[in-house]
Amino acid sequence: MSVVERTSDAERASDNVRIRSGYSIKSILGARETVLLLVSITFSIILSFLSPRFLSVNNLVSIATGMTYDVIMATGMTLVLIVGGIDLSVGSILGLTGVVTTMMLRSGVSIAVSVTAGLMLGVLLGAINGTMISNFKINPFIVTLGMMAIARGAAVVLTSGYFLSNLPPSYLILGQGKLLGIPFPIYVMLLLVILFEYLLKNWSPLYTIFYIGTNPDAAELSGIKVGRMILACYVISGFLSALAGVFMTSRLAMGYAQFGLGAELRAIAASVIGGASMSGGEGSIGGTFLGVLLLAIINNGFVLLNFSVYWQGVVNGLILVLAVAVDAFRRARRGERRI
């Protein structure tokens, strides 16, 4: 494997190294995911005492259903944040692809073609983002801000601001159909989370985005396909936003230009709560999922306990601050130098 001859010295040293298992108790307890899971469980226990309705199947399913769009979009967002970018256009892409899909359906195009076209539009918009960022080296914040305005504007132009209802009933199955009493989108969401979490940690091409996000120049000189992977992340993000758009229009049985308004900020917040960093190179899909879950449980609590729903925003903001504070504490302990 190596071109270097082992010196006897080094050989002895390496024999002395005990094989550590990949995971120690300490590293599991210290992980962001564990903390989030524990906090979520704690909240759930408290809520189940305060409101017996919390643990009812109906309520749990409705929490999970409400999460799907955010989880699907935040999955793409996490990849983009890890690779060192940001994607402000996810909410608008959701809106536009939803509008395009429903318009095609209403004009009699088959479901398969309409959905595929919607998803491909998401891929295309993501590819435009990615190309401008990786090829023309333009700040991703600005590129996706522009795309956000364009996609949302296009959606409004196409619909003139109206709702597009009267969708074919068979289309509604996508978002409303159930298997074993659980709506389809939940299965898709869980599948996507597990798939991307696994690929991100274990599949070499996707794993390289951690390197790219940490230091793109060094990654380039290490032989990593930097441009292609940046492009891929934005394409995946566009695709997943479009997928969320399909589910949302199907579930709500209509298309509307303002669907997904503000979703980009929620997705970023969930990713950051889940451990992603604005400077790139950090984050996990599992963490992001738990970030969305935590916010969903808390918001559900507001509803169940008949608190004013208007408090949600305040609490969501505070949780984001808390996540950043925890991160700051962790960094300080790790001994990062200031200058």
Partner: peptide, 21 residues
């Protein structure tokens, strides 16, 4: 600036250019 991934572990850095192996 061009060589190391400073906020990553030594292990990640060592295998950075040989992941394909």
């Amino acid at each position: 600036d061009l060589g190391l991934f400073l906020t990553k572990t030594v292990r990640s850095n060592i295998v950075a250019s040989s992941l394909s192996k």
